[in-house]
Amino acid sequence: MSKNFAKRQVLPGFGITMGYTVTYLSLIVLVPLAALFLKSAGLGWADFWKAVSGPRVVASYKLTFGASLVAAAVNAVFGFVVAWTLVRYQFPGKRIIDAMIDLPFALPTAVSGIALTAVYSSHGWFGQYLEPLGIKVAYTPLGITLALVFIGLPFVVRTLQPALADLERESEEAAASLGANRFQTFTRVIIPTILPALLTGFALSLARAIGEYGSVVFISGNMPMRTEITSLLIISKLEQYDTAGAAAISVVMLTVSFGLLLAINLLQHFAGRRFQGAL
């Protein structure tokens, strides 16, 4: 895109909107984040390394990023199914289901965490049947993943819906008339077309999961080395007045998250570039 910055447009205002964007981003995002870096820099290199590489911290990274990736992947698959159902079919109650998708957005996360714990604990509605099968949900990484799936689902559904609605029915018919079976039509025509939207949904869901706190703390049980997520670790550092340590861990989280999101964005750029007409 080598367009002029501020081409003549019907609606003027590039200057004011750009200025607002920069100021706003600075005040709300950049300044607090810079403060975070500054705070952790006060530690000195050796202490910083010690703070962010302790076994308990490393275990929490693994759990947080692992569970978040799994949850985002699960959401990508099942969010696709939900979005597909909502876009492609007409059925009674469709509006209600469509509205329900947004509930994880609206609900205080602690409420959803408590609800999930109640249902999946060993005496809960589902938990009591799963437990004899050897499946423990509450107070295990599985439970954490479940909570992350719950809060991430709307991101995938909401980003996929417009993409699926935009799909030309004719290109599916074209594929069928050329002899492609349903599976081939799905994997070679539909999926590649919606891939950029799917990646966006995945990235949003992942980002949300990495930063999640409220819903997880109730279902995880917070056992060090086993079910302790990084956000919780940061909170407990703060409670011990170890602000610099908390900031150091936050910096690591921030850097890794930024790296992941950037990678997904690049991937999406390459997937989408082909049919956006850029040479």
Binding site: E168, E170, S171, E173, A174, A175, A176, S177, L178, G179, A180, N181, R188, V189, P192, T193, L195, R274, F275
Partner: peptide
Amino acid sequence: GERQVGFVFQHYALFRH
């Protein structure tokens, strides 16, 4: 797919990817 017809659509229906 089994009729061996070639179908050309009004809006081309090309695979854009």
